Computed example of a mutant assay.
Amino acid sequence: MLTSMRTSAKRSLRKVLTTVAALAAVTAALALPGPASADEAPASAPEASAAVPWLATEGNRVVDSSGNPVTLRGVSMIGPRHNYECTECNPQPMADHIARATDPARGWHSNVVRLPVTEWAPNDSLSLEDNIAQHVDPYVQQAVDLGVYIIVDFHRVQDYGTGGVPQDLVREFWEYVAPRYADIPNVLYEVYNEPINPDSWAQWKSYIQPVVDRVRALAPDNLILMGSPQWSTRLNGAVNDPIAGGNIVYVYHLYPNQGAATAAILDPKFGNAAEQIPVFLSEFGWNPAGEWSDPVTEGTTSGWGAPLREYLDARPHINWTAWAFDNYWKPQMYDHDWNLLGGEYQGQFIKQWLAELNG
């Protein structure tokens, strides 16, 4: 259903401009403890907390440590390394975004946030260790302090294997990250954001299974979010041929260019599979035609967002994070000055949706 347009559009979402400025002071709102600045990130990993229960999978559900069903619902941030790239935007620290998105006092009720981890800054020799210390550790600690879940997302939008991202590179990332947060129940691992080609579940499983094996050896308990080929739209392969390792939730990414948000279209994509395996929509979003959308994400609240909500509300076993809690990565929820986009735009709708469910 997706075309080459998806590749260019997704790349435009992650477009890197001329430079990456250092992150400014990053202080959590609500006087909650947090790092003073991402540039002053601690050398050691964040500390564990008992504020949230460990999560696991049981049948097609995510459950807590007592076996109670849990539905994770929230928003996806942009990659922290790109937070200050928009020259026409009013910048705000990433910690402020996370604090806002999880703050009931400001009307937001996310119980999970998704944090993309990229390596796309220009002229940048930042090591993996420094990247994690500056752009992940502070926000993992913030999630612990806030008592919410956070998805550490290896945010590649590329082919995998021969001609694409080498398996060794993915292993290197997770061999460092997996043990770093292995004792923190707040942290979920999304092993590969959007592998594209080959369009084969069998080839994808052969490529990613050794990575998962390594993650499980280093982090036995953290929930794993598993993408699939063609921009994470091929999770049906897991129904009869799941990835080994346990506590794995299968990811789907959904946008208006894939068709109407009706059961007739969504059931074969992921809805039928979600009756048998755990499913997580870790990306979806829309905005009307214009500067806040592109050919992949062009849609309206009344025509696409509202029907999608009806579909997902009837299926609380499906978890989700909406894309993107930002003011310039499309489809954004805010304008450049951090005014929430309403009407046929997605921002106000998703805020109210989260408040009515998670609230």
Rank of each mutant, 00 (worst) to 15 (best):
D130M: 03
L146G: 01
L218K: 12
L218I: 05
N193M: 13
D213P: 02
R315P: 12
E298L: 04
I196Q: 06
G161N: 00
D267T: 12
V157F: 12
E310L: 13
M1R: 11
A56M: 09
P138E: 01
E291Q: 15
I248D: 06
W231F: 15
A28Y: 11
H135V: 02
R14N: 12
E119G: 09
Y334M: 02
Y139A: 03
G285I: 10
M5H: 08
T18R: 12
W108I: 07
G245S: 03
F325D: 08
P122K: 10
M5L: 15
A133R: 15
E190V: 04
G74R: 05
P69M: 11
E47H: 09
H317I: 00
E298R: 05
Q332K: 11
A28N: 12
V62Q: 08
P35M: 06
A41F: 02
W329Y: 09
V191Q: 02
V112G: 03
A25E: 14
E47T: 14
N358C: 04
V113D: 07
Q230F: 05
Q209S: 04
L357I: 10
Y255A: 05
D326T: 12
Y328E: 00
R6K: 00
R81I: 03
Y176V: 12
V112I: 15
D96F: 06
G161S: 01
N287G: 01
R100H: 09
Q203L: 10
R106Y: 00
G290N: 12
P242A: 02
N240L: 09
P295W: 05
D213A: 10
P91T: 03
P229S: 09
Y250H: 14
E356N: 14
P331L: 05
Q142V: 01
I150V: 15
D241Q: 07
A133W: 01
P93A: 14
D335R: 11
K10F: 13
L17S: 11
Y192H: 13
P278A: 08
H317S: 10
Q134E: 13
E40P: 00
K205Q: 13
P185F: 03
R114V: 01
F349E: 02
T321K: 05
P198R: 07
A217G: 13
P116I: 09
S65A: 15
W286Y: 15
I132H: 02
T300V: 09
S228N: 08
G347C: 07
A9R: 06
L30S: 15
T87K: 07
G305Y: 02
P195C: 12
G237A: 10
N222R: 04
T102M: 05
Y311Q: 05
E40F: 10
D96L: 11
V20L: 00
V16I: 14
E172P: 01
M226A: 15
P69F: 13
I208D: 03
R73K: 14
I184F: 07
P166S: 12
T7E: 11
W54R: 08
V26S: 15
V251C: 13
N236P: 05
A50T: 14
L308C: 07
A56D: 04
S44R: 08
A121R: 02
M94A: 10
G67S: 04
R309S: 07
A263R: 13
E172C: 04
N111C: 02
T102D: 06
Y328T: 11
E275V: 01
S4M: 13
E275T: 06
V165R: 03
P295V: 04
D39L: 14
A264M: 03
W108S: 05
T321N: 10
G285T: 09
G59P: 06
N272Y: 04
G303E: 04
T87H: 03
P53N: 07
